[in-house]
Design a protein around this nucleic acid. Structure first.
Length: 113
DNA sequence: CCAGTGACGGCTA
DNA sequence: TTAGCCGCCACTG
């Protein structure tokens, strides 16, 4: 098994988890990273989401940082696409920040376990 | 090959 | 409590 293959596996893992996020719910990069065993490497999760751009099936808009801030909104087609999408699903967003993030937080290592 | 950057997170002052 | 620094890992210049 080459290391390149392992990297691909990690990316696929991220996509699988993100696709499992229920509507109206959100999670953080660190939570996904920890669930995948890449604890501490939340940046890799973010990089995987960037690579998920061509994959519109991936609800990357449901993934935010640990404070619930839509830091990745700038990477979408439009700077407000992420916020619009979240509000469309019932997630209230204020100033690029998820409202009641603590209640809407979805932990893969807890819900999927 | 070396240095800088980035959809982050945790620790220390 | 709030603000700032360092650490992870991969990619670009």
């Amino acid at each position: 098994m080459s290391q390149e293959n392992k990297k691909e596996n990690f990316f696929q893992n991220v996509y699988e988890v993100v696709k499992l996020i229920p509507e109206g719910r959100v999670t953080s990069y660190g939570a996904i990273a920890s669930y995948l065993g890449a604890k501490g490497s939340a940046r890799m999760v973010g990089w995987a989401l960037i690579a998920s751009h061509p994959m519109t099936q991936i609800p990357a808009h449901r993934v935010v940082n640990r404070v619930g801030m839509l830091t990745g909104s700038q990477h979408f087609d439009a700077p407000n696409a992420m916020q619009e999408r979240l509000e469309q699903e019932g997630v209230q967003v204020k100033d690029n920040q998820v409202v009641e993030f603590d209640k809407l937080f979805w932990d893969p290592g807890k819900e999927l376990l």
